[in-house]
Design a protein around this nucleic acid. Structure first.
Length: 588
RNA sequence: GCGCUCGUAGCUCAGCUGGAUAGAGCAACGGACUUCUAAUCCGUAGGUCCCGCGUUCGAAUCGCGGCGAGCGUGCCA
């Protein structure tokens, strides 16, 4: 199904070709159609006349008049109007909206969202927590944004592979191994393994911060692990297993799913050969005992990730792939990971949903990959930081930061309190289920409704707000669509006559029809917040419709049509919220 | 020093590829509930889009130069 924007654009380009010869147009020129911001300017608008006026040496309004003259609207819209300096405004006809309502109801699965062309295999790397450390609020962004992008890409027909590249081989294991051997409480371990692991990590970490000599002791444990020491390997494996169980609980609660958990350790045996190969190929070289990738000097210095400027002088900034002590770095692992994802998964694209501070790392990684002759599309999808009260970054290493589980629990508790107040007659079971959906949904929506690059200070009330532009608002709109059918005593049935009479109805149909325009646009710049903003507008349009248009008291075609609007709104909200990873509920 | 990101209403933030009079939510004030669940709707008030210059018919958006904040800048990830 073509979107309104696509149909109008096609017709506009046909009209344009009759008015302006293709020789006068820039190569591959396409007239664009935009959704109008203000209803007084119609539903869609084009600025093509203003864009082209100068080039064809014409007055924009005159050019617009000729384009309109040649425009064959069919029954999709009324005659376009010229406004302002040369805008062409299109107002959809009631017939077009009525037909679209029927078409969208018939398209129950995709709701007017077309498949992406071409279909690609996309590996999405997100969440990637460190093993044996608690997931804190900082992990929420990668996890929730990545999951939403995975859902959206999948909905658009791409083959999506979600890979949790967990940190299961880092330096933290030196501390954990020492802690396991020296301060582990085995009884506590039996009862609450994750909590005990976290306690041990925190205690050793704070000891290591203060004591340089002790850090060396821990490093010794790490070296033994990396050397294949059996006792340490066994402990390491146990830690990973326990951590995975703990992480899985949170992912289940968040309804986040991975196809693979290929952590750093998975690539261990590939790192040595990879480094040697890079040296052979002349891409990497030895420097101060370490193996590094330096610039190939093909780019300008200021755009070259292998240079930095110090006191007005450009000095090499290498990408380290082997330390002078022989150890490997996360850059090495990332290079190996790219290889694996291409050879084993057939990745056309790899998306990395990782915090903005790692910009340089990915610039170097991508540049190195390109120099190896790999043409796969690599996308760094950065996000801003969650800051502490002091406006400083919440550090991964800071064992004191707020844990993700606590955020979820608090959110669910707050939702529960409001349910108790507003709907005490619900059963305990219903209350618990609704509170869970609202609480988790609120956390996700808070994250997804703002631009990913925005930094913000962690604040319980901001993140867990339940009024205004929040998950409960959208869920309430959905619940209201369901309440109608519950009251009526039966589900929606196909058929019936369509007749749009009120402006609120037309506004709602138009908004619903734009689902197919919004969803694909999210991936153009990886902005799930564009979908969130759209869904908020759908909910607002529906709430306005709800106020203005009684459904069950109306009759005939008007009633049929309104029931269709309720049904379609419900479907779009459920599907759209689903793409954000937010579950809908029938009552609240 | 240099690089990246950000700077929009009292507060929290939208505003992607340049479009018409810059929008939401919260907070404030004034209205609408024996309801198809008011977790809603309607209205009022609130702006030097950090500053300056430039490109353009048109700039919050693009370019250059400042100012301010955060992050990054060779052996952690």
């Amino acid at each position: 199904m073509q979107t309104f924007a696509q149909i109008l654009s096609q017709k506009l380009n046909e009209a344009l070709s009759k008015v302006v010869s293709s020789d006068d147009l820039p190569e591959g020129f396409q007239a664009d159609i935009d959704q109008s911001q203000n209803p007084q300017f119609g539903d869609y608008q084009s600025n093509v006349a203003m864009v082209l006026a100068k080039r064809v040496k014409r007055n924009p309004r005159e050019l617009a008049a000729e384009i309109i003259e040649a425009f064959e609207a069919g029954d999709i819209c009324d005659a376009p109007e010229i406004a302002g300096p040369g805008f062409i405004n299109f107002r959809l006809s009631s017939a077009a909206l009525e037909n679209r309502l029927a078409d969208l109801l018939a398209d129950a699965k995709k709701l007017g969202v077309g498949a992406a062309e071409p279909e690609k295999t996309i590996v999405i790397d997100f969440s990637a927590p460190n093993v044996a450390k608690p997931m804190h609020v900082g992990h929420i962004r990668s996890t929730i944004i990545g999951d939403s992008l995975a859902r959206i890409a999948g909905f658009l027909g791409h083959k999506v592979i979600a890979d949790n590249h967990i940190g299961d081989w880092g330096t933290q294991f030196g501390m954990i191994l020492w802690g396991w051997k020296n301060i582990l409480n085995h009884d506590a371990m039996e009862e609450q393994p994750i909590e005990e692991l976290v306690r041990v990590y925190r205690e050793v970490n704070s000891k290591a911060k203060a004591d340089l000599h002790f850090r060396e002791t821990c490093k010794g444990e790490l070296v033994k692990l990396q050397g294949g020491d059996e006792e340490n390997l066994a402990i390491w494996e146990k830690c990973i297993e326990l951590s995975r169980q703990g992480l899985q609980k949170i992912y289940d609660r968040l309804d986040v799913h991975f196809d693979h958990w290929l952590g750093e350790s998975f690539y261990n045996d590939q790192l040595g050969p990879l480094v040697e190969k890079l040296v052979e190929e002349g891409i990497a070289e030895e420097s101060d005992g370490a193996i590094c990738v330096f610039s190939d000097n093909k780019a300008e210095k200021k755009d070259d990730p292998f240079y930095k400027n110090e006191n007005d002088e450009w000095v090499p900034l290498p990408f380290l792939i082997r330390k002078s002590d022989g150890g490997f770095l996360y850059g090495t692992t990332d290079l190996a990971t790219v290889d694996y994802r291409i050879s084993e998964f057939g990745a056309d694209s790899i998306w990395y949903v990782v915090g903005a501070p790692q910009q340089l790392h990915f610039n170097q990684l991508f540049a190195t990959t390109e120099r190896r002759g790999i043409e796969t599309d690599l996308q760094f999808i950065p996000f801003g930081s969650i800051l502490g009260k002091d406006r400083r970054m919440l550090r991964t290493r800071d064992g004191e930061s707020v844990q993700l589980v606590d955020v979820l629990n608090e959110s669910v508790d707050r939702a529960r309190a409001i349910i108790e107040e507003k709907n005490p007659e619900l059963s305990d079971e219903e209350k618990a289920d609704i509170a869970e959906a609202i609480g988790i949904g609120a956390v996700k929506y808070a994250e997804l409704s703002q631009f990913r690059m925005t930094d913000y200070v962690f604040d319980w009330d901001t993140m867990l707000a339940l009024k205004g532009n929040t998950a409960p608002y959208l869920l309430n709109a959905y619940v209201r669509t369901r309440a109608i059918f519950r009251k009526m005593g039966k589900d929606f049935e196909e058929g019936g006559e369509i007749k749009l009479t009120e402006q609120a109805e037309k506004n709602l149909v138009l908004k619903l029809a734009q689902f197919g325009e919004v969803v694909p646009s999210v991936l153009s710049d990886f902005r799930p917040n564009a979908l969130a903003a759209y869904l908020y507008e759908v909910a607002t349009s529906y709430h306005k419709f709800w106020e203005a248009c009684p459904v069950l008291q109306s009759e005939g075609a008007v009633r049929d049509t309104r029931l269709m609007l309720c049904e379609l709104t419900g479907r779009v909200l459920k599907c759209g919220l689903g793409l954000l990873g937010i579950r809908t509920i029938e009552k609240m």
